[in-house]
């Protein structure tokens, strides 16, 4: 499939369909993007597992680090890769050795490995590359709009309210495409890798 753009339906289905997310390359340092994304997703009810061989014995937001995908004792729905594009290949190989296979392999903003993605897709796994699940959740729920960010969605429907807390918006919000960001998308593609 085309990995330059993803439809909102595709991304929303993924974020709605997964429960357990293993984040490879999660950092315990509270100013790193992986820490931000891990904590945000954990707060939204995902069962988050931090993977980082250098951090075993420590924990992130109360979740103990494990060394690799092979060391996880429960079913994983999604593998979120916070490593560079080259290193993503080996992580995908590890994910393909899992039984049962994960449903989704997600590579973070700036991470793209088309060969590894093709391998995963051949095994029936859905792939997202060069996106952040925190930003996508914030965008599709419209939480990110509170920061003045163009969510690229429009909606004339009242969104459901998540229970139990406030300043939260639901991922299950009816929306259609909104204002596009073509110049930013082109700049990202032209950026020297």
């Amino acid at each position: 499939m085309n990995h330059d753009t993803y439809s909102d339906i595709y991304v929303r289905e993924i974020l709605n369909g997964v429960k357990t997310i293993a984040m490879v390359g999660a950092s315990p340092v509270n100013v790193r993007p992986s820490y931000f994304a891990f904590k945000y997703l954990a707060e939204r009810g995902y069962d988050m597992i931090p993977i980082n061989p250098g951090q075993v014995g420590r924990s992130l937001a109360g979740k103990p680090f494990v060394a690799s995908l092979r060391d996880i004792d429960r079913l994983i729905d999604m593998v979120d890769i916070f490593r560079n594009s080259d290193a993503a290949a080996a992580v995908v190989d590890d994910a393909l050795a899992l039984n049962p296979l994960p449903k989704v392999i997600w590579m973070q903003l700036g991470v793209r490995n088309d060969a590894a993605a093709a391998k995963a897709e051949a095994a029936g796994i859905k792939v997202v590359m060069n996106r952040c699940p925190k930003i996508e959740y914030g965008r599709l729920s419209s939480e990110i709009s509170w920061m003045g960010v163009n969510s690229r969605t429009l909606s004339a429907k009242r969104a459901p309210i998540p229970t139990g807390s406030f300043q939260r918006m639901s991922l299950n919000r009816a929306s259609i495409s909104g204002g596009s960001t073509g110049a930013a998308d082109r700049a990202a593609q032209d950026k020297p890798k």
């Binding site: 709009s145 509170w146 920061m147 003045g148 960010v149 163009n150 969510s151 690229r152 909104g178 204002g179 596009s180 960001t181 073509g182 110049a183 930013a184």
Partner: peptide
Amino acid sequence: AVLEERVAALEGGTA
């Protein structure tokens, strides 16, 4: 924030 997102969308900006 509504104003911000609206003008960003009209200009084709990210935020």
